[in-house]
Structures are given as C-alpha cells and as structure tokens.
Amino acid sequence: MVRWRPNGRHPFVQLRSDFDRLMGDLLSGTAAPVARAVRAFPAVNVWEEGEQLFAEAELPGTKKEDLEISVTGNELTIRGRRGSSVAEGTSFHRQERGVGEFSRSLRLPYDVDAEQVEATLRDGVLLLKLPKAASAKPRKIQVQSGPST
C-alpha cells in the first residue's frame, strides 16, 4: 500500500506552522481537550442530531469512485486515495498536498444501522448520515396490568 505522504517542508517551517496551527486552534476553540501529537487523515467531525449521527471529512480531490466507506456496528471506516496533481517527474516549487492512499477508522458512540447509512461527496466534503441502530435506541417497555386478584 502506498502511504499517504506529505511532502517537502523544511523541518523548521514545519515546526513553525505546527505551532501557528496549534495556537490558532487554541484561539478559535477547535483544539481537542487532549493535544494530539499525531493526527490521522482525514480529520473528522462527528455530531448528533436526534437519532442520527453525522460525520464529515474534508477530502478535496478525491473522487467518489476512489472512496470506500464501511460501517460495522459502531465502527466507521473511511478509505480512499488521491492521485497526484501532475505527472511524476515534474518540478515542484511547493508540494503540500498529500497523495496516495489513506484509511481511517473511528469508533462511534453507538451502533448505527449500516443499511441506512447515506454518504454524499460535494466540493471535496464528505458527509455521512448514520442513523442509530434499533438495538441502540431506548426501548419503551409497556407496563402490563397484572391480573387483579
């Protein structure tokens, strides 16, 4: 498998940009409660609306046929690939856009109904609708009236 490879930044530039990003995240309130030294690709946002979970990931330049999404129980996996913007051997002045294959697995807070999962990819943004599985929904238990004795 071809690894997702980021390209060619000077380590110091890298460090500075990491620092800037961290500061920016802290200031804008998007920082995770625990600092993540390693960030997996793609970054994912997950939220809940009613009995549905939503997951979103930014995947610019990935075609829908190059994307494979699977759900088993409460585990969501997003796999895909992105090709290079140009032919091999071209001279790059900057190369920041990663290319190759990626795979990300994520544990959701509850089981989702894999049959009902919907995925849309628009302008490089993947949106997943993940309805709660029946088994994860609270069940109403009817109280039977007992025989009166």
């Binding site: 997702w4 980021p6 930044r9 890298q14 800037d20 920016g24 804008s28 390693v38």
Partner: peptide
C-alpha cells in the same frame, strides 16, 4: 510528531 500534521488545515496568519 509525525509529518502527517502537514496535511491538516493551518490557520492563516499573514
């Protein structure tokens, strides 16, 4: 720190 971090969005600071 892995270099994968380069792939994330960076806040603009210019």
């Amino acid at each position: 720190m892995t270099s994968e971090a380069t792939l994330q969005k960076e806040p603009a600071t210019d």
